[in-house]
Amino acid sequence: MLITRRRLLATLTGAAAAIGVPSIWMSLMKTYDGPVSDHFDGLHFFDPDGSPPKSLGEVLRWQFGGGRQRAVWPEWAPSPHADTPPPRVDGDRVRFCFVGHASWLIQTAGLNILFDPVWSMRASPFSFAGPKRHNDPGIAFEKLPRIDVVLVSHGHYDHLDVATLSRLAGAFGSRVITPLGNDVTMRTSDAAIKAEAFDWHQRIELGNGLAATLVPTRHWSARGLFDRNKALWASFVLETPAGKLYIVGDSGYGDGGHFRRVAEAHGPLRLAILPIGAYEPRWFMRDQHMNPEDAVKALADCGAAQALAHHHGTFQLTDEAIDAPAIAHRGARRGERAAREISDVEARAGVRDLASSR
């Protein structure tokens, strides 16, 4: 099959966001330098209970192999919802707003926290190529309240958006909490980003009685051609007055061990935010992204009383249709017949309120 230069660039740029196949121009970026541990060999991070990332050959097989069925998304799929958050949410209430893809605003105890904020039009190292938004963020950037803390789970372009982090640094001087090595990426791009890097299992006081702990997740990271797994990836357990929140940016399911270990170490969990999108084809994506059926199993494993679904409907990173995750998700919930329920967050600005009373 003849592959044009333009198509190959688009392929690799799209994969940079979806699964970390990187751009050549980022290949010489600075990376983490630290002591050897049980998940860092001195050069690369690894998950002792995970799977290595797919090779470039497998990426090309997915993109250009025979029989591929890639759904066509609408050019623009606007949401009827747009949120204007309050300046603060005090006391033991927690307010959630789904900004889109994996981005959330979490307000509680007088602090405003953003998770994996992406306000850019593309999840890509380029402004002219790569996955493009299909709807506006659920909150206009100008309507954000003052942001105190930002949690960034890992370095893939649909989660670590340096343009957005720079805007937040300029507007609010927000504190940024991220796994080891991603602080190098942020500060190399903009020294004004107040990035603090931590290892798995470290607990960070955020103020007002809140704390965040980084926990292992079944994923990996890359931004440049030669920096694969040179920065760490994580999920977060956020301690709030209303209970503990488990926030997962990207993760495969595997045998469920990652989720069960979080339950053992940090339970009981009041609520989990779980990804349900970017999962087709399964032979390629299952080790790094959950599908809706996996998310239902993950909810049972982590033991959270409630959950919210995300990581779908904004950027087309993989082959499924724009509405496929939400449809499959409802079917998975009905099939499980569990007492717990993952709430659909299909609107671009779904808002949920959580009080401390059970």
Results as ranks from 00 to 15, higher is better:
Val72Pro: 00
Gln69Trp: 08
Pro85Asn: 04
Phe64Lys: 08
Gly67His: 07
Gly65Asn: 08
Gln69Gly: 05
Ser51Trp: 02
Gly65Asp: 05
Pro80Leu: 05
Pro53Met: 11
Pro78Trp: 02
Asp83Thr: 12
Ala71Leu: 08
Gln69Tyr: 04
Arg88Cys: 02
Gly91Leu: 00
His81Glu: 11
Pro86Glu: 10
Pro48Phe: 06
Asp90Trp: 07
Gly66Met: 07
Pro52Arg: 09
Gly66Cys: 04
Asp90His: 06
Phe64Gln: 10
Asp47Thr: 05
Gly67Thr: 09
Trp76Met: 04
Gly67Lys: 11
Leu56Trp: 14
Pro86Tyr: 00
Ala77Ser: 12
Asp83Lys: 04
Gly66Ile: 04
Pro53Lys: 08
Ser51Glu: 15
Arg70Ser: 13
Ser55Leu: 13
Trp62Met: 15
Pro53Trp: 09
Asp90Ile: 00
Pro80Phe: 08
His81Val: 06
Asp49Arg: 15
Val59Thr: 14
Pro74Ala: 05
Pro78Thr: 03
Arg61Trp: 14
Gly57Pro: 10
Ala71Thr: 06
Gly66Val: 08
Pro80His: 10
Pro87Tyr: 02
Asp90Tyr: 00
Asp49Lys: 14
Arg70Phe: 11
Val89Arg: 06
Asp49Ser: 11
Phe64Val: 04
Gly91Asp: 01
Ser79Val: 02
Pro53Asn: 13
Lys54Phe: 03
Pro86Asp: 01
Asp83Tyr: 04
Gln63Ala: 15
Ser55Ala: 12
Pro78Tyr: 05
Pro74Cys: 11
Val89Met: 02
Val72Lys: 13
Ala82Asp: 01
Val89Tyr: 04
Asp83Ile: 07
Asp47Val: 01
Gly91Tyr: 00
Asp47Pro: 02
Gln69Ser: 13
